[in-house]
C-alpha cells in the first residue's frame, strides 16, 4: 500500500478518513455507504453543547429556573439517588413506569397477536375486526385518557389499560401483516410434506410472522414508553412522568431535566435491548 493511501485506524474510527474500501470509490456523493461515521464531528458537537451549558449557566446568561447548572444537577442527582423524590426512591419511580410499559405491551401482545393472526387467516375474523381496528388505530392513545379516567379512574389499572390499548392495535397489525407476508411456496411445501392445517399454522405461518411481530413489539415498547410518561403527567403519584410533573410545580428545573434525561436513556435502552433480542431470537430476519 502506498503511503498516500495509508490512514491510521484512529482517523478512520473518528471518521476523518475513509476506510480502505471507500477510498477506492470514485463516486461518493449519492452513495450512502460511502458516507463515513463522522464521529469526530459528533464529539465536537457534544463537547460544544456541554461547554455552552457550562458557560451559559456559570456566567448567568440563563436563569436557573430555565436551565440548571452542572452543580445543581449534580447535587440534585445525589439527593434523588439517596433520598428519592417525595418519599419514593428514584428507582421506584423508574420501575413503576417500566412495569406499566411492560404490562401494557405484554397484555397487548397476548391479545393482539392471536387476533392479528386470525385476521390474516380467516375472513370472518378479518370482517369482524377490520372496521374496529381501522377506526381505533389512528386515534392517539393519549386522546383516550379522558375516557379511561371516566371509566376506571386514575389508579394503576387505568394506566395499564391505556398502554394495553396502545400496544394492542400495533400488535394486531404487526401479526396480520406477518401472516400476509408469507411466501405461498412455503405453505404449499408444508402441505405437500403432509402437514395439517394446525401444523402449517404452528410451523410455518407463526415463525414466518415472527420478524413482523417482533417489529410490532419494538414499536409497542416505544409508543408505550411515550404514552406512560404522558399518562403519568396527567395523574399519578409515582412514575418518572409524575416526578417531573410535580417537580415542575415546584419550579425544580434540575429534577425536570434529570427526569427527562432518564426518560431518554431508558427509551434508548429499551430499543437497544430489543435489537439484541431480535438478533438473538430471529437470526433469519430478512433472509427469506
Amino acid at each position: 500500500m502506498s503511503d498516500k493511501n495509508h490512514q491510521s485506524s484512529l482517523m478512520i474510527w473518528l471518521g476523518l478518513a475513509d476506510n480502505s474500501f471507500t477510498r477506492q470509490k470514485t463516486v461518493k456523493f449519492g452513495d450512502p455507504s460511502a458516507v463515513n461515521s463522522g464521529r469526530a464531528y459528533g464529539i465536537i458537537m457534544v463537547a460544544g453543547l456541554l461547554i455552552l451549558w457550562w458557560v451559559s449557566t456559570n456566567f448567568g446568561w440563563i436563569k436557573p429556573i430555565y436551565w440548571p447548572s452542572y452543580s445543581e444537577v449534580g447535587n440534585r442527582l445525589v439527593k434523588l439517588l439517596s433520598e428519592g423524590y417525595r418519599n419514593v426512591s428514584l428507582w421506584d419511580h423508574i420501575s413503576a413506569s417500566v412495569y406499566r410499559v411492560l404490562s401494557g405491551v405484554f397484555y397487548g401482545a397476548v391479545l393482539g397477536i392471536p387476533l392479528g393472526l386470525a385476521m390474516g387467516l380467516s375472513s370472518i375474523a378479518r370482517g369482524m375486526f377490520d372496521p374496529v381496528v381501522e377506526f381505533v388505530r389512528p386515534i392517539p392513545p393519549l386522546a383516550l385518557i379522558p375516557l379511561i379516567i371516566l371509566w376506571f379512574g386514575i389508579d394503576e389499572f387505568a394506566k395499564i389499560f391505556l398502554l394495553f390499548l396502545a400496544s394492542l392495535f400495533i400488535m394486531i397489525i404487526a401479526a396480520r401483516s406477518g401472516v400476509n407476508g408469507v411466501n405461498i411456496s412455503k405453505v404449499h411445501a408444508a402441505y405437500s410434506l403432509g402437514a395439517s392445517k394446525f401444523q402449517v399454522l404452528r410451523t410455518v405461518i407463526l415463525p414466518n410472522a415472527l420478524p413482523e411481530i417482533f417489529t410490532g413489539l419494538r414499536i409497542s415498547m416505544g409508543v408505550c414508553w411515550g404514552t406512560v410518561v404522558a399518562a403519568e403527567l396527567v395523574a399519578a403519584d409515582r412514575g418518572i412522568g409524575s416526578m417531573i410533573m410535580i417537580a415542575k410545580n415546584f419550579l425544580q428545573t434540575d429534577t425536570v431535566v434529570i427526569g427527562i434525561s432518564i426518560i431518554g436513556l431508558i427509551g434508548f435502552g429499551i430499543e437497544l435491548i430489543m435489537r439484541v433480542l431480535e438478533r438473538w431470537l430471529i437470526p433469519w430476519r430478512g433472509t427469506g
Binding site: N183, K186, A189, Y191, L193, G194, W284, G288
Partner: peptide, 19 residues
C-alpha cells in the same frame, strides 16, 4: 383433490423454512 405427502414438491426457491 388437494396436496398430500404422496406428491412431494420441489420449488424454484424460497420454500425452505429459514427458521
Amino acid at each position: 383433490t388437494g396436496p398430500s405427502a404422496e406428491r412431494g414438491m420441489v420449488f424454484q426457491q424460497g420454500a425452505l423454512f429459514e427458521w
